Structure formats: structure tokens, C-alpha cells
Amino acid sequence: MQYRTLGKTGYNVSSISFGAWAIGGTWGEVSEDDAMSALHRALDLGVNFFDTADVYGDGRSERLIARLRRERPEPFYAATKAACRLDPHEAGGYNAQNLRGFIERSLQNLDTDTLDLLQLHCPPPEVYGRDEVFGVLDGFVQEGLLRAYGVSVETVDEALTAIRHPNVSTVQIIFNAFRFKPAEELFAVAREANVGILARVPLASGLLTGKMTPRSSFASDDHRNFNRHGEAFDKGETFSGVDFETGLQAVDELRPLVPEGMTLAEFALRWILMFPEVSCAIPGAKNAAQAEANARAADLPPLNEETMRGVAAMYDRLIRPQVQDLW
């Protein structure tokens, strides 16, 4: 496993970390035994950063991570997200009372006194420009409820607005071979501001594993079935906003670029790590085998320039017209 510094937090985090959405919910049924096996195997392999949210399984994901901490002596970082529980999810709800309530609930779920990292969970765009919201978070840091805070965003513009606030430590954003815009417009600014980048949806909801076909089907409670057009939340969270059929075509064009001995999923994760501004990629895992497959990518050799150009050419031809101007 390789490690990188996570922005202003100073945390030394595994370059392949663990995204805990899949073990919480909306990815089909995952048993508690399988979820815990995935968490334990990730920790075995040097993963020391686990990303969750209070809405993943209504706290289930947070509670599973708390169980991991009770069962293992090794220290690790647990990041969570808050405020997506607001109903309605409006900017006015981002106040001290509501945020404190969400934080206290996550502290209870995670069985801890202080959150390693709290991220605002894809708030309405106007929240990013409100100094008072970030002032509230500063107060929670001073109070000892948080060690650090950041934002989880949908768009590059939201990220750029957020990091103008001096104590934003991290930005979590969708970044993969189907989402080039962060590398083009965000990463240099984040590096200058010492803001860590968490690359979420690194495998484009599984498209970049290369295991899907036109006949692939998904459970009724899997967002890849019910959110392809943004019916439940931002459509960019499902297949990175790429049309499924176009995504399959793009995957076919990537296959010849994959070095011998690498799987397509490993290739997709290693591609992300070619960008030094990325502190870590956070693929999900539903079982131990998936956690192990993800972790292998951290120790693969760098991709060469010809390969990187090939990925860029695929993106420009097939993907850029669909996603570049939306997020």
C-alpha cells in the first residue's frame, strides 16, 4: 500500500481507501458478515481511511465502521458526511442547530468523541458561498467535535467556491476515466490551497470493472437500476452520468490499453493515482474479494504516457460531449 497526505488534515492516508456506500445501502443486499469481511480485509491490506455518510443505510455504514474499530487495534481514519438528511434539502437548513444534530448522531453511530473528518454532503450550490456555514464548522472544530472538515461536491464549480474558505481541508468529487474535468480545472487550484482530493465513484459504479454487458441487470434497491436519469439524486452519481451503452463502448476502447497482468478495474484505479493531487481513491467493496482487488491497484507500476494519451483520446471522443459541461 502507498500513502499520501490528505490536504490540511496532515493525515497520511492509503492511496486506495474504502468507500462505504455499498455496505450501507442502495447497491443491493449486502449481509453484515460480507460487509465486515470487506472492512477487515481492507484493513489487513493497509487501508487506513474509510469514507461513509449518515445516510448510507440510515447510519448502518457508520455503525459497521464503529464495529471494525472495536474489533481491531490498528488505528484508522473514519470520514463521514452530513446534512443530506435535511428534508427539504435546502440551504436554509445548514445552520448550527441542524448541523450539530447530524454530527452528534454520527458521533453516536461511529462510537467516538470526535470525527476525524466531516464533509458537507453535496449541499445546494448556494451553501458553498455562505461564510456563516463554514464559521459554524470552525466552531465545532474548536469545540472538539471535529478534527477537520471538507465538502463532498457534485461540480467543479462548487469545489472551487468551497476551497476559498480557508479551513476547508478536503474536497470529495467524482473523478475517473469518465470524468476529466477535475484534473483540468480543479487540481492545480486545490494543490495551491493544500486541499486534499478524495476521488469517489472511481470505477463509475462498476462500469470500469469491465464486467458489465448490455444484458447486465441490477436489484430493485440498487441505484444503478432506479437512478440512471437522476430520479432519486444527482444522475452523475450513477455511472458517472454516462449513458450506459456509451459507457460499455468506452470500456471496450479501454481494454487494449490495459497492461498485461492488470485487470481493467486495477487499471482504472491506477489511472486515478497517476494524478498526484489525488490523496486517495475510495472504491467500494461488498466483500473481502472486492476489497482485496481494489487494494492491489496501489502497488501497480505507473502507466506510460502513451497509455494516458489513449485514455484521454477515448474521453474526448465518447465521453466529453456527455458530461464535461454538466459537472
Rank of each mutant, 00 (worst) to 15 (best):
residue 2 Q to M: 00
residue 3 Y to L: 03
residue 6 L to R: 12
residue 8 K to G: 09
residue 9 T to S: 12
residue 11 Y to W: 04
residue 12 N to Q: 15
residue 32 E to H: 09
residue 33 D to L: 07
residue 34 D to S: 12
residue 35 A to P: 06
residue 38 A to I: 00
residue 42 A to G: 15
residue 45 L to P: 10
residue 47 V to P: 06
residue 48 N to K: 12
residue 52 T to F: 07
residue 53 A to T: 02
residue 54 D to R: 14
residue 55 V to A: 13
residue 59 G to S: 11
residue 64 L to C: 14
residue 68 L to T: 08
residue 71 E to W: 03
residue 72 R to G: 00
residue 79 A to P: 11
residue 89 H to N: 12
residue 92 G to V: 09
residue 94 Y to K: 09
residue 99 L to S: 09
residue 102 F to S: 14
residue 103 I to K: 13
residue 104 E to K: 15
residue 104 E to Y: 08
residue 105 R to T: 15
residue 106 S to P: 11
residue 110 L to H: 11
residue 110 L to Y: 12
residue 116 D to Q: 12
residue 119 Q to T: 03
residue 120 L to M: 12
residue 121 H to M: 06
residue 123 P to R: 03
residue 124 P to T: 07
residue 127 V to S: 08
residue 128 Y to T: 09
residue 135 G to Y: 08
residue 136 V to E: 13
residue 138 D to V: 09
residue 143 E to G: 03
residue 144 G to D: 12
residue 145 L to I: 08
residue 147 R to P: 06
residue 149 Y to N: 10
residue 150 G to A: 09
residue 154 E to Y: 14
residue 159 A to S: 04
residue 160 L to W: 00
residue 161 T to E: 14
residue 161 T to L: 11
residue 163 I to Y: 04
residue 164 R to K: 13
residue 166 P to R: 05
residue 170 T to K: 06
residue 172 Q to F: 00
residue 174 I to R: 10
residue 175 F to Q: 02
residue 175 F to N: 02
residue 181 K to S: 10
residue 181 K to L: 13
residue 185 E to R: 06
residue 185 E to D: 03
residue 186 L to H: 05
residue 186 L to T: 05
residue 187 F to P: 06
residue 188 A to C: 02
residue 190 A to G: 03
residue 191 R to F: 00
residue 192 E to D: 14
residue 193 A to C: 06
residue 193 A to R: 15
residue 196 G to P: 09
residue 199 A to D: 09
residue 204 A to N: 02
residue 205 S to H: 01
residue 205 S to T: 08
residue 208 L to Q: 01
residue 211 K to G: 13
residue 213 T to C: 10
residue 214 P to C: 07
residue 215 R to A: 15
residue 217 S to T: 15
residue 219 A to N: 09
residue 220 S to R: 15
residue 222 D to S: 00
residue 224 R to K: 13
residue 226 F to Q: 10
residue 230 G to E: 01
residue 231 E to D: 14
residue 232 A to N: 14
residue 233 F to A: 07
residue 237 E to C: 07
residue 238 T to P: 04
residue 239 F to M: 05
residue 240 S to M: 05
residue 242 V to Y: 01
residue 243 D to E: 10
residue 244 F to H: 08
residue 245 E to G: 04
residue 248 L to F: 04
residue 253 E to M: 11
residue 257 L to N: 05
residue 259 P to C: 01
residue 259 P to T: 00
residue 260 E to T: 15
residue 263 T to N: 07
residue 264 L to W: 08
residue 265 A to R: 04
residue 270 R to N: 02
residue 271 W to C: 03
residue 273 L to D: 04
residue 273 L to Q: 04
residue 279 S to P: 05
residue 286 K to D: 01
residue 295 A to R: 08
residue 296 R to T: 11
residue 298 A to C: 08
residue 300 L to V: 10
residue 300 L to P: 04
residue 301 P to A: 04
residue 306 E to H: 05
residue 306 E to K: 10
residue 317 R to I: 06
residue 322 Q to I: 01
residue 322 Q to F: 00
residue 325 D to F: 00
residue 326 L to T: 13
residue 327 W to E: 07
